[in-house]
């Protein structure tokens, strides 16, 4: 939208603190970006390595979750 003549926007915007910690919108955004990159990344890495990524890290896989159900 075009501003009418004779009016301008402020030169300095207030720097409000954006919380990075906790259950906030900013935290969710960064976590989601990391997860998006992560999921594609894990796919590609596993394609290349032909092994599970958790195995590479060192976890023992295939033992099942010992949930008393």
């Amino acid at each position: 939208a075009k501003l009418p003549s004779g009016v301008e926007t402020p030169k300095e915007e207030p720097k409000l603190p954006t919380a990075l910690w906790g259950f906030t919108q900013n935290a969710e955004r960064w976590n989601s970006r990391a997860a998006m990159l992560g999921i594609i990344g894990i796919f590609l890495v596993e394609l290349i390595i032909q092994k599970g990524i958790l195995q590479v890290i060192g976890f023992e896989v295939g033992k099942g979750l010992n949930l008393p159900l």
Partner: peptide, 26 residues
């Protein structure tokens, strides 16, 4: 945010399943 939520969910589930069953993402 929506795509990110699905991605977060997928990463968490995939890692859990891989830990439990030994089948990797692929």
């Amino acid at each position: 945010i929506g795509n990110g939520r699905w991605a977060m969910f997928g990463v968490a589930v995939g890692l859990l399943t891989e830990y439990a069953t030994g089948s990797d993402f692929v």
